Amino acid sequence: MARIITDACVSCGACAPECPTNAISEGDGKFEIDAAECIDCGACESVCPTGAIEQA
Rank of each mutant, 00 (worst) to 15 (best):
C9Q: 05
V47K: 04
A23M: 05
D7C: 02
P20F: 02
E18A: 14
A43G: 12
E18S: 12
C15M: 07
I4P: 00
C44N: 08
D34R: 04
C41T: 05
C44T: 04
K30A: 04
I4W: 00
A56N: 10
E32P: 05
I24M: 04
C41K: 03
P20S: 08
I4D: 06
E54L: 12
A8N: 14
A14R: 06
T21M: 14
F31N: 02
K30E: 07
I53R: 06
D34V: 08
S46L: 14
C12H: 08
C41N: 10
E37Q: 13
A52H: 01
F31W: 14
S11P: 01
I4K: 14
S25W: 10
A56Y: 05
C15R: 00
A43L: 07
P20M: 08
A56H: 06
N22A: 13
E18N: 11
I39W: 01
A8K: 15
A56V: 12
T6F: 06
P20Q: 07
V10T: 14
C15T: 05
V10H: 11
A16I: 08
F31E: 01
C12W: 09
G42D: 09
G27I: 03
T21G: 04
D7S: 12
A14W: 05
A2D: 11
A36P: 00
A16E: 15
D40Q: 11
E37F: 06
C48V: 05
E32K: 09
C41Y: 02
C15I: 03
I39S: 08
G13A: 08
A52P: 04
T6W: 04
E26C: 00
P20K: 05
A2R: 11
A36N: 13
A2P: 15
E54P: 03
K30W: 09
C48S: 08
G42L: 03
C19Y: 00
I33H: 01
A2I: 01
V47T: 13
